[in-house]
């Protein structure tokens, strides 16, 4: 794995530059920076609608130093697969010679978990040689914090607000990584924006594989999560330690844990209490809700651990 120094001191410089209009302390831009730094070959990026596209490509300015193509919420994966197919067609007919171009699609959780799921599913099933990276900040942050399929249970959003009747979003977060494993793709991984080493390692591993790859990355949104800007990195790390967002990878259907907090595992409340979107859970009378969230996290963690253990014993 390339060290941070090697990534930072590449002669070509950064492929994703500053001056974009994301909020101070935004969690997603460093995913783009690190992922692009980890790819050594020429790369074509496709971006779904979302903070990613709105912040980085306000006409006439762009933060991308690589070819960047924006399409709608629902078809970034379809567009990327089309670019890939066209590229291989040109290669086959001999109109281009270099065969080392790689394809990456970026999408937010709204454009991946909800609106773009059908095109993503299609692209993965057709087996295009592309990497889809979903940065998951748990709501439609770009349009004003509306709930999405990725919003955790009991989070406060503008379309599932906390009130006298309901304590925020009532449904559980969708498990997208597992949905993608169901597509039988060669590589699926879950990581966070706050662990550069793990993120770079997983992007490098994905890039070494030909075929469809999927990466889902938890990213903090200081605006939507109602957190302090300087805590952006710490928050995603706490999500891992609380086992709310375990780091794991699935290679050819085999689950492998990337990090096990073991005795460093913290109660999920330690992660929730730093976020304004969960502050109602700490009011008197809501202890039951908190216990419910903890039980859910513990069950999922135990299931995942058992699955990883089962696969580690297989040859």
């Amino acid at each position: 794995m390339a060290t941070l120094k090697e990534l930072a001191t590449q002669p070509a410089g950064e492929k994703f530059v500053g001056g974009h209009t994301s909020c101070a302390g935004c969690g997603y831009p460093n995913i783009f920076r690190l992922a692009l730094a980890a790819v050594k070959d020429p790369v074509v990026v496709v971006g779904a609608t979302g903070c990613c596209e709105v912040n980085t490509s306000i006409f006439p300015y762009t933060s991308w130093k690589v070819p960047f193509l924006h399409n709608a919420f629902e078809n970034s994966a379809a567009t990327c697969s089309g670019v890939e197919a066209a590229y291989y067609s040109l290669l086959k007919s001999g109109k281009i010679q270099e065969n080392n171009t790689r394809f990456i699609a970026f999408g937010g959780d709204g454009g991946t978990y909800d609106i773009g799921l059908q095109s993503l599913s299609g692209a993965m099933e057709r087996g295009h040689d592309m990497l889809y990276i979903c940065y998951d900040n748990g709501a439609y942050m770009n349009t004003g914090i509306q709930r999405s399929g990725a919003t955790p249970r009991y989070a406060n959003t503008t379309t599932a607000p906390v009130g006298k009747v309901k304590p925020g979003k009532m449904q559980k977060k969708k498990d997208l990584a597992k949905i993608m494993v169901g597509h039988n793709v060669p590589y699926v991984a879950q990581t966070i924006a706050g662990n550069a080493q793990d993120l770079v390692k997983k992007v490098e591993k994905a890039m070494s594989i030909r075929g469809p790859k999927f990466l889902v990355v938890l990213a903090t949104c200081p605006l939507g999560w109602q957190t302090k800007t300087q805590d952006t990195v710490k928050l995603t790390r706490l999500a891992v330690d609380a086992c709310f967002w375990p780091l794991y990878e699935v290679e050819n259907g085999k689950y492998k844990l990337s990090y096990d907090p073991k005795d460093k595992k913290i109660p999920v409340a330690d992660w929730l209490k730093l976020q304004g979107r969960f502050k109602h859970l700490f009011k008197p009378g809501n202890e039951q809700l908190l216990a419910e969230v903890q039980a859910e996290v513990d069950k999922d963690w135990a299931d995942l651990k058992a699955l990883c253990e089962f696969h580690s014993k297989q040859v």
Partner: peptide, 14 residues
């Protein structure tokens, strides 16, 4: 000490 941790996490490549 040039560990590049700050470089890795700055959202604005600063």
């Amino acid at each position: 000490i040039s560990c590049f941790t700050c470089w890795a996490y700055c959202p604005d490549s600063c």
